[in-house]
């Protein structure tokens, strides 16, 4: 049996807003095995970062409640103290963020920012300097001495993201979380950074949680895909299953709305409406169906069973609306 680096079971996160707890994500079950890349996709506001942040233990406990079970490399995270989290972060798990410029301290030299990731867990490591240089080499920076002595504003966006990756890798974590790691970069650099993440993942046999909007990136990098909508996973399976045989209306809408999929001469589909805000969410229904105007009201308002349906081995779908859903009906209401 493959080694499970991430096991999330029934994970929910609630934010306290105006003295009232509002659920942002609910009942998330996800697993990442060693050497695998799981892509988490979904529109803005669907709760991807909220989930990733709970794996890092970076939610502010004063106004956030995380429940369920999150195990990283077998260790339970839910309920850890701040001190225990400090020892865990950056060691078992490393994280890469979206905007590499704002994610680096503008007043600190690159070398020192990478070194800090090491020394914070190993105070008197005599090898730090060498280790920093090795890390910079590992992420494809040749002039490691010069770069280590520079400040973030002196580097290009691609270089900065390489530095962020070096920081995430500093203690050779088993699990790497990348939250939209290339969104802030231009296309060419994007491809290079993705290549780098792939290389490193292969070399270290690490598990990766890759959060992205870009389905191209998913097909290129991921082994498995989970599709998130309004705080819940609506479909998950292998890349082939999701791309070749998508079931849930949301997955199919996302694929149809993907600019890479549009055929010449065809108009790009855009999903009507927006993701509901926390106050509007209903976790017993399939809230995406609100955005399919041609569906029957009965289907839209049907209660959704808690368990996802396994439509083929390893391929899970939430609810049953997918059975009634078809893009051929788009114009039905209008006729």
């Amino acid at each position: 049996m493959a080694e499970k680096l991430l096991e999330a079971n029934d994970v929910s996160v609630d934010f306290r807003i105006n003295n009232e707890y509002l659920k942002a994500i609910s009942g998330i079950n996800l697993t990442i095995n060693r050497g695998k890349v799981l892509a988490l996709v979904g529109e803005s506001g669907s709760g991807k970062s909220t989930f990733a942040t709970s794996i890092m233990g970076l939610h502010n406990p004063e106004y956030t409640k995380v429940s369920g079970s999150i195990k990283v490399a077998g260790k339970e995270l839910v309920g850890l103290s701040e001190k225990e989290f400090d020892d865990y972060r950056g060691v078992s798990v490393g994280m890469i963020f979206q905007d590499p410029l704002s994610s680096l301290n503008p007043l600190m030299k690159i070398g020192d920012q990478i070194a800090e990731a090491i020394t914070v867990h190993d105070k008197n490591n005599p090898e730090v300097k060498n280790r920093v240089r090795t890390l910079l080499n590992d992420v494809g920076i040749d002039e490691e001495k010069r770069v280590a002595d520079q400040y973030p504003h002196q580097l290009s966006g691609g270089m900065r993201q390489r530095v962020m990756i070096a920081i995430a890798l500093a203690n050779e974590p088993d699990l790497i979380i990348a939250d939209e790691p290339t969104t802030a970069l231009d296309a060419i650099i994007q491809a290079q950074i993705l290549e780098l993440i792939k290389d490193i993942q292969k070399k270290k046999d690490a598990g990766v949680l890759l959060i992205t909007h870009n389905l191209d990136v998913v097909s290129e990098l991921a082994d498995d895909v989970a599709v998130m909508y309004a705080g819940q996973i609506v479909e998950k399976g292998s890349v082939e299953q999701i791309f070749e045989n998508p079931k849930h209306p949301y997955t199919r809408s996302l694929l149809k709305a993907d600019p890479n999929n549009v055929r010449p001469g065809e108009e790009l589909y855009s999903i009507p409406g927006t993701v509901p805000s926390l106050a509007e969410m209903d976790f017993n229904k399939d809230s995406f169906l609100q955005r399919v105007p041609w569906l029957d009201e009965k289907v839209v308002n049907a209660d959704v069973p808690e368990q996802m349906e396994e439509v083929e081995p390893g391929h899970f779908v939430r609810g049953t609306a997918w059975k009634d859903f078809s893009f051929d009906d788009v114009n039905r209401n209008e006729d």
Binding site: R89, E116, V120
Partner: peptide, 20 residues
């Protein structure tokens, strides 16, 4: 964001204040 990065490295909050 850089505060989040420091926290993600495992730096304690009081050191994040002091150093960053």
């Amino acid at each position: 964001d850089y505060v989040r990065t420091a926290r993600a490295k495992g730096v304690q909050i009081k050191d994040v204040f002091r150093k960053h």
